[in-house]
Design a protein around this nucleic acid. Sequence first.
DNA 1: GTTGTTCGATACATTAGCGTACTCAATACG
DNA 2: CGTATTGAGTACGCTAATGTATCGAACAAC
Lengths: 236, 236
Amino acid sequence: MTRATMRVMTTPPSAEPSIAPSAEAAAGPVDVEPAPAKRRRSVTRERLLDAASRVFAQRGIEGATVEEICDRAGFTRGAFYSNFAHKNELVVALLDREEAALFERLGGVVESALGYPNPIEALSQLLFEIAPFGVDNHLLRSELSLLAVRDPELAASYLASQRTFRERFGPFLESGLAAAGLRLTVPAGDAIDTLEAVFEASMRASIVAGRGPNPADTLARRMLPVLLAAISRPAP
Amino acid sequence: MTRATMRVMTTPPSAEPSIAPSAEAAAGPVDVEPAPAKRRRSVTRERLLDAASRVFAQRGIEGATVEEICDRAGFTRGAFYSNFAHKNELVVALLDREEAALFERLGGVVESALGYPNPIEALSQLLFEIAPFGVDNHLLRSELSLLAVRDPELAASYLASQRTFRERFGPFLESGLAAAGLRLTVPAGDAIDTLEAVFEASMRASIVAGRGPNPADTLARRMLPVLLAAISRPAP
DNA sequence: GTTGTTCGATACATTAGCGTACTCAATACG
DNA sequence: CGTATTGAGTACGCTAATGTATCGAACAAC
C-alpha cells in the first residue's frame, strides 16, 4: 500500500498501455511519438482531453466533473491541475484540438469532391462525411456557444474558433460549388452558419427523440440539398 | 424583529406592489385577478416564474440558483419549495407559460399576414414579429434542448412542447404561404425546425458577438427570405 | 551512482447549493 | 369571533465539487 503500489493499480486501469520507459514504438496512434519519456506530460494531456471529450459528450460541459474526467483518463485530479489551470482551459484546449481534427478530415476528403454526377447531391454527401464527424463535437460546440453567451473568456475562444472555421471552410464550400458549376448567392459566412445551425438542430433532435445519433433520415439529411440549392445558382 | 417585521421588509423589496388584502384592482397586469386573497399562491408562482425567466436569461438554466430566483422575486426558498417540487418543475412550468404566451402573440398577429405586396417579405416580417419575442426564450429553449439530451424527464416535456408548437405553427405557416399563393415543398415539421434552428443560431451569434440582441442585420434577417423561398413554390 | 527536477497522487479545506422540517402569520370559513 | 387551513420564512444538514498544499517516485543528466 505504498504509493508505488497504488500507482501501479491506478495508472493504466483500462486505458492505453502504460507509458513504460521503452514503450516508444508501442502505443496505438501513428503520432510523432516524441522523446520517449520527456513528453509524458503531453501524453497525459492528450489522455485527459480524450476523456474529457467522452465525458462532455455524456454529461455536458457543465455537468461534467473534473473528477470523472480524471477517473476515465486513469488519473487523479492532481494530474489534472498539473496540466490545466481550470476546467475552462480544458474546454478551450479541447475545442482547439477538435478543430484541428476537423480540418484534417476536411483535407482528406476534399479531393473526393470533384466529378460527381449530381453536384448538389455530391456536395451534400461530402458535407455529411465531414460534419457529423461525431455527435459529440456538435453537442460540444452547441453547449459552448451557449456558455459563451455568458462567459466572455469562452466567448473569445469560441469566436476565434468560429472565425478560423469560417475562413477555412468558406473557400472549401465555394470551391466545391464551383467545381459543380455553382456559386453562392449569399455571403459565405451566412451559408456556413445556416448549414451549421441545421446540422446542430438535427443532431440534437435525433438524440432527444431517442433515435440513434445518425439514422439514415435526419433533418439535416433531408434539408441539406434544399439548403444548398437555395444558397447557390449556376455560375455565369 | 418579529417575523412580521421582517416579512414587511422582504416581501415587496423591489418588485410589483404588495399583495395587500384589498389591492384587487390595484396591481399592474390586466389579468383575471381572481378571488382577492384566495389566490395569493398563483401570484407568488407567477412572480417566481417571472424572476426565473430573468435569471435564466442571465445565468442560464444550470447556472441559475434557486436562491437567486427567489431573491429576485422577493421571496425565500421556503416559498419556492412550497410552489415547486424541483428546479426542473420550474423549468417546465416556465416553458409552458412562454409557449402559451407565444401562441397568444401568434394569434394576435395572424391577421396581419394577408394582403402584403411581396409574399415572401411579408412572411419574413411576420415571423420576425413573433419569433424574437425575446432573446430570453430562445436561449431558454436552446439550453433546454441541450439539457433534454441527457435528462429524460426534461426531454419528455421538451418534446411535448415541441410537438404542440409544430402542430400549431405548421398550419399557420402553411396558411401564410397559401395566402401568398405558395405551398411548402418540404414537410412542415422540417420547415419549422429549419427556421427555428436558424433563428436560434442567429440569436446566439449576435449575443456572443456582443452586438445587441436584435440589431437590424442578423443571420436570420438575411437568411429568412432565402429560406422561405427555398421551401416553397407557387401553388398549382 | 547521485542529484535535481518534474509529474502525478493524497489529503484537506472550503464553498455552494439543494432539499427538508419546523414555525409563525394571515386568511377563510363556520 | 374562533378555529382550520394554507402559505411563506427560518434554520439545518448534507452532498458534491473545486482548488490547494504537500509529498513521493520516476526519469534525466552528470
